[in-house]
């Protein structure tokens, strides 16, 4: 049959193809809700931003809070840690970023160098790194041995990227808002 009609398509061939194409689009449209229902729902997306009081964190320590189900590290860096983070040759980094671009400006418009805020999830396979561990005294991931520095940048091990910086801002000198 197909060979006979191949030379010159008829009106009926057109109707067959058009009907088939229409049915395919319809089937795809019906499948989409079944797939999309697995994406984050409204309540997950609506998880409000949170405010954290950082005034009680002493220099050289950090706290972990939960935001959108993920751990977030808030680290009060010491002078040495800041210096160590700034003195790195950017060209040597796997995911080159200066320390400055990983920080935000405070309420007074100055870069808040002593505050480092990171999503505490290793960029390799999602474990939570341990603070003040590893060669650079930044973070060390116990799962597969990735090492991060005092700016949360990847320095050694299998992870491809620096620890992610969440969206946040200073609402006052002692409070930050994450999200």
């Amino acid at each position: 049959m197909a060979e006979i009609h191949a030379a010159e398509p008829t009106r009926r061939d057109f109707l067959y193809v058009a009907t088939g194409a229409f049915a395919a689009v319809g089937a795809a449209a019906a499948v989409w809700p079944l797939i999309d229902q697995m994406n984050p729902d409204a309540s997950v997306l609506a998880l409000a931003s949170i405010e954290v009081d950082i005034s009680k964190i002493p220099v050289g320590q950090e706290i972990t809070i939960k935001w959108r189900g993920k751990p977030v590290f808030i680290r009060h860096r010491s002078e040495e840690e800041i210096k160590a983070a700034e003195s790195v040759d950017i060209a040597e980094l796997r995911d080159p970023q200066t320390d400055d671009v990983r920080l935000v400006k405070g309420a007074n418009g100055q870069l808040e160098k002593q505050w480092l805020v990171l999503i505490g999830i290793c960029t390799h396979l999602g474990c939570v790194p341990l603070a003040y561990k590893g060669e650079f005294n930044g973070y060390f991931c116990p799962c597969h041995g990735s090492v991060y520095d005092t700016s949360g940048r990847i320095r050694k091990g299998p992870a491809p990227l620096n620890l992610e910086v969440p969206p946040y801002k200073f609402v006052s000198d002692s409070k930050i808002q994450i999200g």
Binding site: M38, N39, P40, D41, V44, R68, G69, K70, I121, C143
Partner: peptide
């Protein structure tokens, strides 16, 4: 967490695929 993150290694679509598998931004209730 580790196994679902494996899918995050896929170029281009990895990130959204992972979120889709989780139904959130981390392994959780969904």
């Amino acid at each position: 967490t580790v196994i679902t993150n494996l899918f995050g290694a896929i170029p281009l679509v990895g990130e959204s695929l992972r979120t889709w598998l989780w139904g959130g931004f981390a392994v959780g209730d969904p």
